[in-house]
């Protein structure tokens, strides 16, 4: 099974990298870009387990290791 976890800053936290990319895009003429939030993607390959089992352990490792819950949030999808 393959799972993709997306970690990004919580909305309340300033994301200077995202801001820098936004500013760069504005300079390049993409004025239509309203906002950018930058994040990290983890692609996790798991030995075959049930979807329920994945739904149990993915939030656990995301919360414990992949994201820092003080500043970051995560979401995930099972892609394979």
């Amino acid at each position: 099974m393959k799972v993709r976890v997306l970690v990004s800053f919580k909305d309340s936290v300033l994301d200077p990298q995202g801001q820098a990319v936004k500013n760069a895009l504005h300079t390049l003429g993409y004025g239509g870009v309203i906002d950018i939030r930058q994040g990290k993607v983890f692609e996790i390959e798991l030995e075959d387990i049930s979807v329920e089992e994945a739904n149990r352990i993915i939030p656990e490792i995301s919360d414990k290791v992949l994201a820092n819950p003080i500043i970051e949030k995560f979401e995930y999808q099972i892609i394979e």
């Binding site: 936290v13 200077p16 990298q17 820098a20 003080i70 500043i71």
Partner: peptide, 17 residues
């Protein structure tokens, strides 16, 4: 220490990146 939650808060990238 922050990650271990012995102290409150977190560090993000310096403001000038």
């Amino acid at each position: 220490l922050l990650e271990l939650e012995l102290l409150p808060g977190a560090m993000t990238r310096n403001k000038n990146l």
